[in-house]
Design a protein around this nucleic acid. Structure first.
Length: 218
DNA sequence: TCAGGCTGACAGATTCCACG
DNA sequence: CGTGGAATCTGTCAGCCTGA
């Protein structure tokens, strides 16, 4: 992994153009077999520019560093998270569920944003009070853009906490460790215990486990 | 000309291995 | 021990190609 450091370039361009509240948006939890997809939205202040040193792609941070940064973001920035359950993912598909979670994250901000910097490839137009919001999509944005990196950290920490809680509700799958991802242990538990309401039934490994469970029961 | 299929690029993440 | 790269898994989408 090259040492790419996120920059304020996109935010500064918007600030210069008169957009005061620029929200970075990112989602986590697209790949797992179980659990929700979670989106984060963060509006950073220009005065917090020192964060550029600490903020990186959430995947490149240790869990402790993520927790620490998430606490700082929650204290000093306007932030929100949105969820789309596994049921919504099965109903809408992962892409629309992701957009649904992003919309909820934006709605949970204290104030509506003037402009958005969104991780990914342009796929949807977000709006505020019925009017389209100025938006800029950045591929690999969590590694390139500070606001998106902050949003990815908030979303990741929120989702991890949720999966730890759900580990108590659905013991035996190791959600606290695997966060719903298809580790060998999780796959083995899926075959042994069958899918729960947390599992994405449209995902092939989950569907196969459900079918094997049904065949075994017959 | 148009519909359908294929391919590659993109998103999320984990695991394993090599290297400094 | 920490870091980085490759391979792996999931799904969506845009663009190109092919055949009717």
């Amino acid at each position: 992994m090259s040492a790419i450091v996120p920059t304020w370039r996109a935010e500064r361009a918007y600030w210069k153009a008169g957009y005061a509240r620029v929200a970075g948006v990112d989602e986590v939890g697209r790949g797992p077999l179980a659990g929700p997809v979670v989106a984060g939205a963060v509006v950073l202040k220009e005065s917090r520019a020192k964060w550029v040193k600490a903020l990186r792609d959430s995947k490149q941070l240790t869990a402790a560093a993520r927790e620490e940064l998430a606490a700082e973001i929650r204290e000093h920035a306007d932030w929100g998270v949105g969820f789309a359950s596994s049921h919504v993912i099965d109903q809408l598909g992962i892409v629309w569920a992701t957009r649904f979670a992003m919309r909820k994250a934006l709605l949970s901000l204290r104030e509506g944003p003037d402009a958005l910097i969104v991780d990914g490839r342009e796929s949807v137009q977000f709006s505020r009070d019925g009017a389209p919001i100025e938006q800029h999509w950045v591929i690999d944005g969590d590694a390139l853009c500070v606001s998106i990196a902050a949003a990815s950290i908030v979303a990741k920490v929120a989702r991890d906490a949720m999966m730890v809680d759900l580990d108590c509700t659905f013991p035996g799958y190791g959600f606290a460790e695997n966060k719903g991802y298809a580790t060998a242990e999780h796959r083995a538990a899926l075959l042994r215990l069958g899918p729960t309401t947390l599992h994405r039934l449209t995902w092939a490994p989950v569907r196969e486990a459900a079918e094997l469970g049904r065949a075994g029961a017959q």
